[in-house]
């Protein structure tokens, strides 16, 4: 249920920024409630000065209503990055509670490539970094990761978008397939992403404009295909009746 902000949480002391700072710094003070975990600086309330961080050139957005909960994106993610199929190692998390009513049954958690990435800000070794050579995607350099889990705790979202790899005792995160050794397509912010190309529902997409940082709306977008024109319910040969503009015949 409602998550109270972790005020005074010992783990957060000594960090440059924390979840709490992040929320408060944005000028949004929420005493709790389910949305608190998603609260981020609104455009209006954001500090006037532009972020010190270069913005990512690509963002993964999704449509939680269009999603079918098949988790193919998750399995594709772990296959191309880790070489094995795992839900726990996936950098996109799609949680489905089948006994909850649509559309509240599916929750999709993607890395937002935050304008002010707290995982990057707080990482003590620089493992979490901004990859200037690859469209400023926020990445983890696993060779520099010491497994301190700071980035997991720093991520202001629930569930945290940084992912723990228990066998390696290292953290990792979505790199938009910049470094996906088992992916046979060019990845990265200007390339393709395994989750996007695998999704059978067209429920995932990469955009190149910074989505609105208000709540989740900027990322959970409408990607549903347009409905068929009137009279055309997918039956071959059916033509709209009395319509001046009939759809072009497919041969």
């Amino acid at each position: 249920m409602a998550r109270a902000p972790k005020a005074g949480n010992e783990k957060e002391q000594g960090k440059k920024y924390s979840r709490r700072h992040f929320v408060a710094g944005g000028g949004v003070v929420l005493a709790g409630g389910a949305l608190s975990s998603y609260a981020a600086p609104t455009a209006a309330a954001a500090p006037a000065k532009a972020s010190d961080y270069p913005q990512s050139t690509a963002y993964l957005v999704y449509d939680s209503r269009q999603c079918a909960g098949c988790q193919s994106c998750m399995l594709a993610c772990s296959l191309v990055h880790e070489g094995e199929a795992s839900l726990s190692l996936s950098r996109i998390q799609v949680t489905r509670s089948v006994l909850t009513r649509y559309p509240y049954d599916i929750q999709i958690a993607v890395c937002r490539q935050c304008p002010e990435p707290l995982c990057v800000a707080n990482c003590p070794t620089g493992a979490c970094h901004i990859d200037i050579a690859n469209g400023n995607v926020r990445r983890t350099d696993e060779s520099r990761c010491i497994g301190c889990q700071t980035c997991l705790e720093s991520c202001p979202f629930t569930p945290h978008r940084t992912v723990w790899k228990p066998d390696a005792s290292k953290a990792t995160k979505c790199d938009l397939c910049t470094d996906a050794p088992y992916f046979s397509k060019p990845g990265g912010p200007s390339g393709q992403q395994a989750c996007v190309v695998t999704c059978p529902m067209g429920a995932l997409k990469v955009v190149h404009e910074l989505p609105s940082q208000t709540d989740i709306g900027g990322y959970d977008v409408n990607l549903a295909p347009p409905p068929p024109p009137p009279g055309q319910f997918g039956f071959p040969g059916a033509k709209p009746k009395g319509s001046a503009k009939s759809a072009p015949e497919k041969l």
């Binding site: 949305l35 949680t95 509670s97 599916i106 979202f157 629930t158 723990w164």
Partner: peptide, 11 residues
């Protein structure tokens, strides 16, 4: 006990 709905389940 955490909500597994649209608004998030923790790891």
């Amino acid at each position: 006990s955490k909500n597994h709905g649209r608004y998030g389940s923790e790891w």
